[in-house]
Simulated assay, not measured.
Amino acid sequence: MSYPNIDWKNLAFDYIKTDFRFISVWKDGEWQEGILIRDNSLKISEGSTALHYGQQCFEGLKAYRCKDGSINLFRPNMNARRMQHSCNRLLMPSVTEEFFIQACIDVIKANEHFIPPYGSNGALYLRPYIIGVGDNIGVRPAPEYIFSVFCIPVGNYFKNGMKPSDFIISNFDRAAPNGTGAAKVGGNYAASLMPGNIAKANGFADCIYLDPLTHSKIEEVGSANFFGISYNNEIITPKSSSVLPGITKLSILQLAQERLNLKVLEEDVFVSELDRFQEAGACGTAAVITPIGSITYLEKQHIFYSKEEVGPTIRKIYNELTGIQFGDISAPNGWILKI
């Protein structure tokens, strides 16, 4: 296979223009069949609701090159269902699970030479999105919508990769208590730009958000989910209606329970009780798993397993998850779609 001239070993999480993307338009009550196009720009009405009122949502999933040359797409049905939930929250027409997955398959096949080689630790990141477009000015659902999927080859989201990173508790809120926190919509990420920038300017990988109602419980780590490994052999993750239901998080919880014999708990994670955790991490499609070396709160730094070394349990979870994604370890039923 002829690969593009890319330094695969040093891939970052940056935009790289690939050859084709899928696009379909919703008009007159139905989605068009959709096509692959080369143009990576959109022409939309200046009155589009996506521009003025944030009527848009997106997803993120990855395709992996296996040792035998085959391609693994990881749990695309979960992304399709989560996008349907986001669309329902914003009064947008959703696409069927079958349509979503086929669009992803078409994009992967058309850009197969951009999938990082096996052993490079990179993957092909797919970004499906739906935006409200068409001539409009009132605060109402759009008259038309665009569904599109593009892809980019990516490496680690956090620059430290699978090394412990330092985080700080933010004074800002990511989402409202009964808002859109559980939907993957752009407004949640726009709200995170300033606090994330402040954290990074002060030497942290990102910030951690507390619950918006009481500011006493951990909710999310930047744009990733939080989890901790307790001294009682438990894996614990926050339970909240304003936390995004992460597919990587749900996957590692299942693996931790079924393959590592850890007890799984989804419950309140009080920032005042960090001493219960021997290890902690952030997880997501982009981040995969990033060990948390320390959390700073009210000028006090709490160090977990180590600021230099990955804890043994997180290492096992990471190896199990990535082994499944790259085809080196057998996957639970339905997790892998072979392309």
Rank of each mutant, 00 (worst) to 15 (best):
M1D: 15
W8P: 03
K9C: 06
K9N: 12
L11V: 13
F13M: 07
Y15H: 13
N40H: 11
K43A: 12
K43P: 01
E46H: 13
S48P: 02
L51I: 13
Q55G: 12
K62R: 04
Y64L: 00
R65F: 06
P76R: 10
R81N: 14
R82E: 08
S94H: 14
Q102T: 14
C104N: 05
F114K: 00
P116G: 07
S120Q: 01
I131Y: 00
A142N: 00
E144G: 01
F147N: 01
F147E: 01
V154A: 08
N171E: 10
A190W: 12
A199G: 07
N202T: 02
D206S: 15
K217A: 15
A224T: 14
G228T: 12
I229P: 00
T237L: 03
S240A: 11
V243C: 14
L244A: 12
S251Y: 04
I252Y: 00
L253K: 03
L255K: 01
L262R: 03
V264S: 06
L265G: 04
V269K: 08
E279H: 11
G281H: 02
G284A: 13
A287L: 04
F304E: 09
Y305M: 02
G323T: 13
G323V: 14
F326T: 14
D328Q: 15
A331H: 11
I336G: 03
